[in-house]
Design a protein around this nucleic acid. Sequence first.
DNA 1: CGAACAATGTACTTTTTGGTACATTCGCCG
DNA 2: CGGCGAATGTACCAAAAAGTACATTGTTCG
Lengths: 211, 211
Amino acid sequence: MSDQPIRQRDAERTRSELLAVATEVFAESGYSGARVDEIAERTSTTKRMIYYYFGGKEQLYRAVLEEAYRGIREAERGIDVGELGPAEAMRRLAELTYDHHLEHQAFIRLVSIENIHRGEHIQRLQSLRDLGQPAMSLLDEILERGRSEGVFRDDVDAFDVHLIISAYCVFQVANQYTFGYLFSRDLHAPESRAHLRSLIGDVVVSWLRDR
Amino acid sequence: MSDQPIRQRDAERTRSELLAVATEVFAESGYSGARVDEIAERTSTTKRMIYYYFGGKEQLYRAVLEEAYRGIREAERGIDVGELGPAEAMRRLAELTYDHHLEHQAFIRLVSIENIHRGEHIQRLQSLRDLGQPAMSLLDEILERGRSEGVFRDDVDAFDVHLIISAYCVFQVANQYTFGYLFSRDLHAPESRAHLRSLIGDVVVSWLRDR
DNA sequence: CGAACAATGTACTTTTTGGTACATTCGCCG
DNA sequence: CGGCGAATGTACCAAAAAGTACATTGTTCG
């Protein structure tokens, strides 16, 4: 990294700068709302380079989506519920998921944008197929421990738990503006966060323990 | 309604046709992705009329958003949990909310789109302030009955319950494409629906009963 | 009836925007 | 050390898209 000579030309740097800036701009404005010229202006290079490295606006967007999902997967792999008992592990997983979503709002916005496009771009990224597997495995393990210890019900599978937690955490970010407006409440106000953070863990654990 | 003569010119009809078509197009393509020309082409009138009646693309979008929220409020007022006991009433409310969301996917898409725009347009619609109140009142009533009958915990308020249910139901629609792809599952497959429909009621009722 | 005005259609303008032709420069390799 | 190709910049183009000028027609009301 630092043993490289200082270069005026550096393909890798140019490409990754474009990708980083494009991620910001697409997340801010959506696919159609994002302007190729704006992305270029925010970098130290030019629009020409977008076409040189990516081919066009659409391929750039796809590259952004792919990299964003990869980054998130990396972050998810850092989740560790350690030596906790099943109920506490589940609660902790829910809370870490909550934190994680609030910290990666640009990513959540990209996901919303992609859904507006009915997933037509993500479907072309074969590398992301079944990217959810790691999350599922961790949940499976916690659920299995809970079942064998007799503290969790046995008719709930990892997918359902993941769905409930994801829905809650994504909603906090993705719908904050309309929901906040309609109920005159700021979901991210400091005085609300601790409560909203623990809420989803409470719900999930109550549910899993209800036998 | 029917005592009017047949008109070739009908301001109300023209305006409402524009609004209806614009709702479809904005929901399909987003604000930036929607084309004024396409909206016009799909009506029996012309682009000129959009500017005549609404002033421009942005005002048209705002009118669409306002009308969509009003329509949803009307639909929500039809929710009736009748004579059911608190737990069953809550379960039924959750299921009706689930049905309602699946039936109004265009509306959910408009909401997602508006959130991508950080709620900048809905904030200009004062008429929608506190539109969530009716939903909150119904929940309050069910919760209060449950508490007084001793079947519900007493430290949960209507807002929290509404948040959990909304998040789940909105997610089913809003994130169906990316979530479905990542987990190789179709959230709207007929064989999944009954399970996903009852799931949220199970979760909420378990939680509220957990004292 | 027939003016007056609301409602509408046609065709145009202007701006924006994604994309490209072409020239140029840097740096590596023989 | 020089030429060759990867990398880059400038300037431009053509299509698309929002918005408008102006003419026209139907409807209503005195």
